[in-house]
């Protein structure tokens, strides 16, 4: 009788091990929630691991940022722009893009993004230096720009324009008088840059969806 009892215990132990193995779910990765939210072309939030996306919402500041792509449209990350406010300050059409017959300046991108209503929004503008610096991530993978490229895809290791104009130029460019502030995404450095220079642009809007 005791032997039968012990045999039942042994069998139950073996069966429970096998059943547990079949029933335990394998560990799978799950997305974590962070500071950034991807928005699709109409401005609808999508999951972190989804794509493609056109804008990024910063949950900390409430700002919505333009995402860059590589499809040769107006948001292509390779295009460069001179700085212009469209009202006489700055230098027009000294950057390189292929969406305009002539060359490009920052107002061209602002105008086209507003016309297109990128992410359903129409108040696109250049960010201030203070705003653009909030994108800096000082611990990127080796050689990457100092930004979270999983959200801000196609970001270049180069200078991006801000709206901060009338900045006194220093050193070699002193003779040009004033320029606008750029933020470099190589190391996050802030520099007064001549309006005529070609730099990248990432637009921002404070609108709420």
């Amino acid at each position: 009788m005791a032997m039968i009892f012990r045999m039942i215990i042994l069998l139950m132990l073996i069966v429970s091990i096998i059943m547990t193995a079949f029933n335990v779910n394998q560990t799978k990765p799950t997305a974590t929630i962070g500071q950034w939210v991807k928005l699709n072309t109409t401005g609808v939030p999508i999951a972190n691991w989804s794509g493609p996306w056109s804008c990024i919402l910063d949950k900390n500041t409430g700002l919505i940022w333009e995402n860059k792509d590589d499809n040769e449209g107006i948001h292509d990350a390779n295009w460069t722009y001179s700085w212009s406010d469209g009202q006489g300050l700055g230098i027009e059409n000294r950057g390189d893009c292929n969406f305009d017959n002539i060359r490009c300046d920052s107002q061209d991108l602002i105008r086209l993004a507003r016309q297109e209503k990128t992410c359903g929004l129409s108040q696109w503008r250049l960010p201030t230096a203070e705003e653009l610096i909030t994108l800096i991530n000082n611990t990127p993978p080796a050689g990457d720009p100092v930004i979270d490229t999983d959200f801000f895809s196609n970001t270049k290791r180069g200078a991006y324009w801000t709206a901060d104009s009338r900045q006194p130029l220093k050193g070699f460019y002193r003779f040009l008088g004033q320029g606008a502030t750029t933020i470099s995404f190589i190391k996050g450095k802030k520099t007064a840059t001549p309006y005529r220079n070609a730099a990248y642009v990432r637009l921002v809007t404070s609108e709420r969806k």
């Binding site: 990765p29 991807k38 972190n48 691991w49 050689g143 990457d144």
Partner: peptide
């Protein structure tokens, strides 16, 4: 860990 990266590769990284 990077929230936007679906594949975490731990120590496996590319040189710059």
């Amino acid at each position: 860990v990077r929230a936007g990266k679906r594949r975490y590769t731990a120590g496996y990284q590319t040189d710059a």
